[in-house]
Structure formats: structure tokens, C-alpha cells
Design a protein around this nucleic acid. Structure first.
Lengths: 149, 149
DNA sequence: AACGATTTAATCGTGTGCGATATAAATGCA
DNA sequence: TGCATTTATATCGCACACGATTAAATCGTT
């Protein structure tokens, strides 16, 4: 029953099998999710991370770069260029906080606020595309929040 | 109880809330997982996607670029540069298949095979770092495999 | 007030992901 | 056979992620 002998050095090692790895399941699911969103987001002119940043801003604008980074769990080295592209697209404005010149305040423009009207249909389209019961989805989401946190 | 009136255009819309989105939970968990692996993989001189590619090759080498792409669900535009870096590191060799010159065969070198001995300890370290019951992990993994597939 | 420590963004370099396109080899079929 | 089609990689451009570093502003302590 118990197979304690060490495997020969060129035998497959069960613990390393790709199929068994949570990390790979996560990696693949995240990539597939991005691909699923892409056609819908193309229509809005947004990338997937840009969409997530807009979700945060639609909840509350203005926000500092740091606050956005906390919400998205991203560093300024990722966010700064992303926000500059949103600014170039006219969706946000960036300005130093007069109260504390270290901070940069990111605020939605009218165009950025207006884009939300086109985004509201996305979650439902995605829900259909995923074809997964709502409770399953919620449970999965809540479990994922606990991963590596 | 039921709140059917349409929200004013600047009110938060429940369906767009970041906290409710499976996509964001997935995005964040995948990023955190990569960060968790990084220090361990740095010791092997591998990036996270490179580690996944090596997992595939440790299961069976040689493999064509296409077979690797199928296993990892990645395009040649992602794999080719990654494999060139593995080749530059002396872990794999790439050569055209004489049987079919369109194909490129990727094979582990001795160094690539030897690296597996240092990788075997990673899954256990990760399992400890994740601090999640084994059954929960397995269930989560299996659910993720069904996402957007 | 002074000045070192801390905080906040930005910058830079490396390595992905992926759409679009290119190229060459193999295949199909009239 | 000849040639269009298909298949297998590679190339290119753009946009992340993130570690490391930098620069500027603020804070704390004296």
C-alpha cells in the first residue's frame, strides 16, 4: 500500500504533476478569464486590468494612487503607466494632492463616468458565458479571496 | 424590500462592485500565488511560467512547442521567447523535428533534468505557506479547471 | 529649526500574455 | 504535377506585473 521508496530520478513525481497543482489551475483560470473578457472590453476600449481599475473608480472617485493600489493589490510601478493610459484615453485625470504633494489624486472625467453605463451589461454577459450556478460562483469567489492572503 | 428603481447614474451599482466579482478574486489570487512562488523559484533561477513549463517537461521530454502550448494553454508567441530563455539557461535544447520541419522539439538537458531534484520540495513548502486543508485545495483546483472552459 | 527616517509616486529593466502578421513546411486535391 | 490551403513556429507591438531604485514631500525627534 504505502510506497515510500524514493522514485528513480527520471520517473514522474506525483507531487510535481501539473494536473495536481493548484497554482496551475489558478494560472490557467485567470488567463482564460482574461480571454473571456477581452472581446467585451475591446468594445469599451479597455484592457482587463484597466477595467478593474475603472470598477474601483466607479465605486469611489477621486482616489489616490495608493488607495487604488490597495484596492487592486497592485504596485505603483504597475498602476502609474496604466493610469497614464486611462488619462490618455480621457477617462481619468491625475493631479498632485495640494494637501500632500507626495500623493496623486485620480479622478473620473465625465467620459469615464459615462463609460459605466456601457459596462453594466458586462457582468451579466459574463455570468452567462461562465455557465456556472450563482452560489457556486459566490463560493468560489470567497474561497479565492483566502488564497495566499 | 425589493429595490427595482434604476439607480441614479452616479450611485454605486451592486453588480459592478469589485468585491462581488469572481474575475477580480481570480485575478488577485493568481497574482498573490505568483508572489508566493517567487522567492522559492528565484533560488532555482526560474520565473513562474518557466516553472510551469519545466513541470510539463519533467513529466515528458521531449515535447514539441505545440504540445507544450496545449498543456499550458499558451500560444507560440508566449512560449517561443520563454523557451529561448530556458535554452539560454542551459535547461532545454530546441531543434527542428527532422520528421516534420515545421515542428520544433524541446528536450530537457541533463541540467534541466537535474533541476527537478531541487523542485520537489517546492509543492510542500507551498502547501504549508497556503495553510489550507488538502481537500479544500483539491476541490478548489477542480473547480478552477472548469472556469471558462 | 534641523535633519534623518518614512511615505508616496515615478522610473527602469526583465519577463510574460496575446493579437496580428509572417514564413516555411507539409498536405490536399483538381 | 502544380498550386492553393493548412499547419507549426516565429516575430512584432502593446500592456501588464513586479523588483529595485530614485526623487520629492512629510513626519518625528530633538
Amino acid at each position: 500500500m504505502s510506497q515510500k521508496k524514493s522514485a528513480p530520478s527520471d520517473a514522474p513525481i506525483e507531487v510535481l504533476r501539473l494536473d495536481n497543482q493548484l497554482c496551475f489551475a489558478l494560472y490557467g483560470a485567470a488567463n482564460r478569464m482574461t480571454r473571456l473578457y477581452r472581446p467585451m472590453l475591446d468594445a469599451l476600449g479597455l484592457t482587463y486590468p484597466q477595467y478593474l481599475a475603472m470598477l474601483v473608480l466607479w465605486e469611489a472617485s477621486p482616489r489616490t494612487v495608493g488607495a487604488l493600489g490597495d484596492a487592486l493589490d497592485l504596485d505603483s510601478s504597475t498602476l502609474t503607466p496604466l493610469l497614464k493610459r486611462l488619462e490618455a484615453g480621457g477617462l481619468v485625470e491625475r493631479a498632485r494632492d495640494p494637501e500632500d504633494e507626495r500623493r496623486v489624486i485620480v479622478a473620473l472625467t465625465d467620459k469615464g463616468r459615462a463609460l459605466r453605463d456601457q459596462a453594466v451589461s458586462i457582468p451579466e454577459k459574463l455570468f452567462c458565458a461562465l455557465d456556472m450556478p450563482l452560489e457556486t460562483m459566490g463560493a468560489l469567489r470567497d474561497q479565492l479571496k483566502t488564497v495566499a492572503k
